[in-house]
Simulated scan of single mutants.
Amino acid sequence: MSGNLAGLYDHNSAPDIEDRDFELLPPGQYDGDIVKAELRDTKSGNMISLDIKLDNGRHVFDNLNIVCRSSTKAEEIARGNLKRIGQINGKIIQDTDDIVLCRVRVKVEVEPAKGNYGPRNVVEFYSDPNGTKVSSPDRPAQRTASAAAPRPAASAAPQQNSGSRSWMRNRQPAAAQAETLDDEIPY
């Protein structure tokens, strides 16, 4: 949607805003939802650009090089991460729309400065925020004994969880979920 801003905005009277440097997230694991997934062309193929909104309100970004003619290793990692996101959320990913609102736990690291670019946060790994073990597609995921037990609080910083977001996903209580995971349901 486009619209004329006459009477709503005047460039000359708008305040000047100072540039801000955003603090990097400390390395750690963070829960969040993928809020944007966009397929983009690259010099060597195609990537899916992800915007992950963490429960603490911050965003991290990741690029999955699903077709990468210059690096089969990058392509393998990206395809594995895409499959893992689908498994965590009980989906077979066939479209970028299938990724939006997927719930994930991401391991975030800090990549050092390179050339003209400063340090930045990078996503190193995806896992299930519910602690459910991700298994092969021919068997349902099963909750391990250690995942079913309450986890001790680590440090006060990285693990970020916030209030109810039930409008974004249908999650069963842990007891009900454990019961359904033991069912022999063919996929």
Rank of each mutant, 00 (worst) to 15 (best):
S2A: 13
G3V: 08
S13G: 01
R20T: 11
D21T: 13
D21Y: 05
F22Y: 12
F22E: 15
L25C: 07
G28P: 11
Y30S: 02
K36T: 10
L50W: 09
D51N: 10
L54G: 06
C68G: 00
S71Y: 05
E75N: 03
I77D: 09
A78R: 06
G80V: 00
L82H: 03
L82E: 01
K83F: 05
K83H: 06
G90L: 06
K91V: 08
K91Y: 04
I93H: 03
D95Y: 01
V104E: 04
V104P: 01
V106I: 06
V108D: 02
E111P: 00
G115T: 03
N116E: 08
Y117P: 00
G118L: 12
R120Q: 09
F125T: 04
Y126N: 01
S127M: 13
S136T: 14
D138H: 10
R139A: 07
T144V: 02
A145K: 12
S146K: 14
A147Y: 02
A147N: 05
A149L: 12
P152V: 13
A154N: 09
A154C: 01
A156L: 13
P158R: 08
P158E: 08
N161V: 13
S164P: 03
R165Q: 14
S166L: 08
W167T: 11
M168T: 09
M168K: 15
R169G: 08
R169V: 15
R171L: 14
A174D: 11
A174I: 14
A175P: 02
Q177L: 12
A178F: 09
L181R: 12
Y187E: 11
